[in-house]
Design a protein around this nucleic acid. Structure first.
Lengths: 194, 194
DNA sequence: ACAGATTGGCTAGCGCTGCTAGAATTCAGA
DNA sequence: TCTGAATTCTAGCAGCGCTAGCCAATCTGT
């Protein structure tokens, strides 16, 4: 039994190694630099080993994405708890979200841009995904009007943040005015504007 | 001189052929099916011919994207002109925008998702891009408060639409509630909500 | 009308990708 | 120590974007 467990432990350890190697490589040089060959070299195993842990490259990216969601959830929570007032919390969370996306673009892409077969808006979604969304939701809830569907409102605000981030990152919106756009978005949702 | 112009005309014709072939293939089977080999076969020339017209595959996608923007601009204008009232116009344009994205996903990706080296938020941006943005802007302008920067407000509303579309298309938002989310977004921007 | 220059398209191939079949090796248990 | 099973590696497939260099058709000047 002990031998069995040791092997399983080593296997789990190696899987962790793969995920962190993929993530570090992606953050350093972008996802296009994360090839199965380079990843294999990085973890000092041969290519096929990757496929004994993950179904393919996409599955590795999905694992990285889940890790990223956990970190995003923490950062959103910290921002929310440090902020004062309903509007302050929403603004702080929006700020934290877009800051995360700009600081860790590769991680963000794995989480929310690249096509990845993770269940998202269902109960089967991995816990970190639900936690990150839950943080957003807790920031949105206090500014919801009576009768509002808080879930839908959160999704809509999230879409706004996501749109700002992706259009900016792809060069379709100038970076300079980001803060002003973010204020407009948050202001219109929190009722501070209009 | 006539021979020269005939050749140029034929060249331009073939370039058009490449762009429409790429677009049709992408719309039928997605961009991952648009390989230089298949595209070459489609136009009944060899691969290198593509490179005598475009710098690479990305440039072909950019050309398709410009075409798409022209069509989007037309659809947005039609929707705006048919709508009644300031809020109605904004809602109609938002509706038309997201409908376009859902009806022509591959085209939309070339325009706003894939990394493509087109100048966007500058005066050098191709005319169709500016026209499409201009249509959005004309729908946003009437709902802007005094002192608002209409350009920034338009960018922010656009980001909201783009976020809704991309998160939905990648399975991160359920399709079912799209109309409700769109109403929330438009409502908060037009001042109808809160 | 012919020779030479030029243009333009094609064949073939480079280096890379994600992924896998099957050989080789290592290891656990008798 | 030997055998069978589990694990890892070597080697290779099919396909990708892209390009060097050959070859044929066309145009130009005599």
């Amino acid at each position: 039994m002990s031998i069995q467990t040791r092997r399983e432990r080593e296997r789990a350890e190696r899987e962790r190694l793969i995920v962190t190697a993929a993530r570090e490589l992606a953050e350093a040089e972008g996802w296009e630099a994360v090839t199965t060959r380079r990843l294999a070299a990085e973890i000092e195993y041969s290519q096929p080993v990757l496929y004994s842990h993950f179904k393919g490259k996409e599955a590795i990216m999905a694992a990285v994405a889940v890790q990223g969601c956990a970190e995003l959830a923490v950062e959103l929570r910290t921002a929310r708890e440090a902020a004062k007032g309903r509007r302050g919390a929403l603004a702080a969370v929006g700020e934290a979200y877009t800051a995360f996306a700009r600081r860790r673009p590769a991680l963000y892409d794995a989480m929310f841009t690249h096509r990845v077969d993770l269940p998202f808006a269902t109960p089967e979604a991995p816990a970190p995904l639900q936690e990150a969304f839950g943080e957003l939701r807790q920031a949105v809830e206090p500014i919801a009007a009576e009768g509002d569907d808080v879930g839908l409102l959160t999704e809509t605000y999230w879409a706004g943040l996501h749109g700002l981030v992706t259009l900016m990152r792809s060069g379709r919106l100038p970076e300079g005015a980001h803060e002003q756009r973010l204020e407009l978005l948050t202001g219109h949702f929190s009722g501070a504007l209009r």
